[in-house]
Design a protein around this nucleic acid. Structure first.
Lengths: 121, 121
DNA sequence: CTTTTATGTAACCTACTAGTTACATGATGA
DNA sequence: TCATCATGTAACTAGTAGGTTACATAAAAG
């Protein structure tokens, strides 16, 4: 239902703090216009519109023209999908393997936790 | 525990299909070396190393030198954190509001679902 | 010691991102 | 109609991402 290209777009969109903040604002004020949204940011209205394009590309925001204003709405579907994929594919499995690895992340030890494969090249 | 800058790094890292694939491979073959990993990709070993830098920057991969090889390990902690944040902050709230909005995403209607605020600027 | 192998660093190129200013369009209100 | 206001488009710039080739280092094997 969600291919890799779509996932790229969603992660890409979420990778910038300002865009996450836009999502929060649109979520809190559904139907907000472009200009009103832009007023909350330091950058120009055009910059905000470009961010909006990225978010619409990722389908995280949908909009509809209403007179001379464009109303913005948040769409949680893509996040739900990634959330679901993480829950099923990633988190469940990975969480089980975390304890074996996490000490490495916290303070790089010298002893390898596992010597398995490593051939192949 | 995870600030916005860290989140940027994780989303940025996950935004590219090749890096997600690297994560999958390292997850399946813990302790794999850089060269062995690079052999699974079309691009050069140096390109793969740069991707690895991004993943280590995001703390999604940790590594340790072992002789002349560097062993790579997957670290699920950042994903767990985002997963938790989504579960608590985002998904729970957003999921409740999805039904009101989703028809807009599926087939742009002409009627606004909500006329609320929209003032502010 | 010399050669090979695994990894790392440097310098460079191209494409894309994120921002800008200036101008265009199109609906509203007087 | 005409001025105004909200939004959209065009063209440009600076910086970063993602890729390359060439060279450097350091451990293992002979």
């Amino acid at each position: 239902m969600m291919n890799d290209r779509d996932m790229d777009a969603v992660f890409q969109a979420l990778a910038h703090e300002s865009r996450r903040r836009m999502l929060d604002i649109v979520k809190d004020e559904p139907g907000i216009g472009v200009g009103a949204l832009a007023a909350d940011f330091d950058v120009s209205r055009i910059a905000v519109m470009k961010h909006l394009s990225v978010l619409e590309e990722a389908n995280l925001i949908v909009s509809e023209k209403h007179g001379r204003t464009r109303k913005l709405y948040f769409n949680a579907a893509p996040i739900q999908m990634i959330h679901d994929r993480w829950t099923s594919d990633y988190s469940a499995y990975w969480a089980g393997h975390m304890t074996r690895i996490k000490y490495l992340a916290e303070a790089r030890h010298e002893t390898a936790p596992d010597e398995k494969k490593q051939g192949k090249s």
